[in-house]
């Protein structure tokens, strides 16, 4: 793994946050609060040396895969892909516009670097398991990462995939749960109490790691730990804050699925720095 400069990574995270606010406000819609809570996770993956990937060769057969199961968080993914060099950064300004490959939810047929078409919650972990099994069949060493929402864990399919992944002992699969405590219509506690999360995954025979999902050091350490476990899948339950870094979004969950108006976006960019 290459030398990681924490300060540089923190700067990268700030840049991704700025892109998220700018592109969703320009689009006039989208899910900025859901994207903001996953920024450090994506930063660690794409810029912290976790993913082995080649932006100039997005279909490189040996690449590690990142599958965004909570597809509505895609502004964070798009920002990371652009910063990593998969496509020009200018494309971010055409988010959700007719003809733009940056659709409202990820479309693997439209945009290089997108590994799965998602947006219907609950399906990404199964797809990731398919990639993980293919690696085994092909004798390849790549690893597969899937990022899920905590509300998304309401879906039965998530637990079907969890059961199957442990059953097939795919050590090359890591799930990350963006545990930001909220879903669309309220807190996970009030809507559908999916907790305790880590105990559930452990009961499904996953190796469980629980971290502060905004502490880049902890995020990187968690990925390191997951990568040492080779006989079972690992899950990282990342405690995060929905809307992280933008006070109005942090304070009020009803911002879910709404872009900031220009004046609030300007204030948000100031706050992010």
């Amino acid at each position: 793994m290459k030398e990681i400069n924490l300060e540089e990574l923190q700067t990268k995270a700030r840049i991704l946050r700025r892109h998220i606010i700018t592109m969703t406000t320009k689009a006039g819609s989208g899910h900025p609060s859901s994207a903001l809570s996953m920024v450090e996770i994506v930063t660690a993956l794409y810029f912290g040396g976790v993913l082995r990937h080649d932006p100039s060769n997005p279909t490189w057969p040996d690449r590690d895969r990142f599958i965004l199961s909570k597809g509505h968080g895609c502004p964070a993914l798009y920002a990371a892909l652009a910063e990593a060099g998969y496509f020009p950064i200018e494309w971010l300004s055409r988010l959700r516009q007719l003809g733009s490959p940056l659709e409202g939810h990820p479309n693997m047929r439209a945009l290089p670097g997108v590994e799965a078409s998602t947006g219907s919650l609950g399906q990404g972990l199964s797809i990731a398991l398919g990639h993980a099994l293919a690696a085994r069949l092909d004798g390849k060493g790549y690893r597969v990462y899937a990022l899920l929402g905590d509300g998304e864990c309401d879906q039965g399919q998530v637990w079907e995939a969890a059961m199957a992944a442990a059953h097939f002992q795919v050590g090359n699969l890591t799930a990350i749960v963006d545990h930001n405590k909220y879903q669309q219509t309220g807190s996970v506690e009030t809507v559908m109490d999916v907790r305790p999360l880590i105990e559930k995954w452990r009961a499904f025979h996953w190796h469980g790691i629980e971290i502060d999902g905004h502490d880049l050091r902890e995020v990187l350490k968690a990925f390191d730990e997951a990568n040492t476990i080779n006989d079972q899948p690992s899950v990282i339950v990342a405690h995060t804050v929905k809307g992280k870094g933008v006070t109005p979004l942090e304070k009020d969950y009803t911002w879910h699925g709404k872009a900031l108006p220009p004046d609030l976006a300007e204030a948000a960019l100031k706050e992010i720095g």
């Binding site: 597809g71 939810h105 479309n107 078409s117 998602t118």
Partner: peptide
């Protein structure tokens, strides 16, 4: 009751 029917949902795109 299925809401957000058709393509008139707009910007959210095909998955929705």
């Amino acid at each position: 009751v299925g809401s957000h029917g058709g393509i008139s949902i707009g910007e959210d795109g095909p998955s929705q």
